[in-house]
């Protein structure tokens, strides 16, 4: 698989602000999963803040210890990330395919249905092992950010989180890897330099770095609580070409 060089996007100020705001959160739960710290900031120089509707807190059950190296501290607020003016949510309602065509529970369309609640029925559970889902944005686009929620009713870290962008639906050519925390190379796609992180209602923003592509593919290989793979929602932000 060929990986392209990534060039960070620079952009100008803009007056555009996304619709946003945080839903009133439920009571926050104490976690034993990881130390907490302010969310990291990042994204384009200049630009506008990327904001979305955050789901309410829903923590169920007893968390399991997260034993992975270099675990990022769990955020206590939404991540701060700037994107170029004119950036739009491209993925809402778009078609999703995946390596597991018969999910254990839920359906792949839940990934782009716009609902980020953590409860039963709001997520899709894929088979164990190394699995992927793929969003077809319908047009080749310049992608600024991927904001994803795997599962946030229990603090856990997903293994081998990899995000790729391509214009090839088979991901055989023109593939850009924009995120990879597969520190143990379980994917056999090469070790990644990003760190494992704790799932929370704040989700995880992956810098799209202005990469062009029609398809976004996300991989995982189970998580620190069980062997399965889950997605609640994925939001892909950018500009359609």
């Amino acid at each position: 698989m060929k990986t392209q060089l990534i060039v960070p996007t620079l952009c100008a100020f803009s007056t555009l602000l996304f619709t946003a705001c945080e839903k009133k959160a439920g009571t926050s739960a104490e976690s034993t999963a990881a130390p907490e710290a302010p969310a990291a900031s990042g994204g384009s120089i200049g630009g506008v803040p990327l904001v979305t509707t955050l789901p309410p807190e829903l923590i169920e059950g007893t968390p399991k210890p997260i034993k992975v190296p270099n675990l990022e501290p769990a955020p206590t607020k939404a991540p701060e990330f700037r994107v170029p003016a004119g950036t739009e949510l491209l993925s809402k309602g778009k078609k999703v395919t995946g390596s597991d065509t018969n999910p254990i529970i839920g359906t792949l369309d839940l990934i782009t249905d716009g609902d980020k609640d953590a409860g039963e029925g709001y997520f899709v559970e894929l088979l164990d092992g190394f699995q992927w889902v793929q969003i077809d944005l319908a047009k080749s686009s310049t992608i600024s950010a991927i904001w994803l929620w795997h599962y946030h009713s229990q603090k856990r870290a997903y293994n081998a989180v990899i995000a790729q962008i391509s214009d090839d639906p088979e991901f055989k050519t023109g593939v850009t890897t924009v995120y990879n925390n597969d520190y143990a190379n379980v994917s056999k796609m090469g070790k990644g330099s990003n760190n494992p992180y704790v799932e929370t209602r704040y989700g995880k923003i992956i810098d799209g770095k202005g990469t062009k592509g029609r398809y976004v593919r996300l991989y995982t290989a189970g998580n620190t609580s069980n062997e399965m793979n889950h997605y609640i929602e994925v939001e892909v932000y950018g500009k359609a070409s």
Binding site: T27, E30, L58, E60, G61, G106, G119, E120, Y122
Partner: peptide, 18 residues
């Protein structure tokens, strides 16, 4: 057990499939 872990399950918004 913390307040956050003692909330009612399911909240107000049950998914239709459940």
């Amino acid at each position: 057990r913390s307040l956050g872990s003692s909330q009612d399950i399911g909240g107000e918004k049950l998914h239709a499939s459940t």
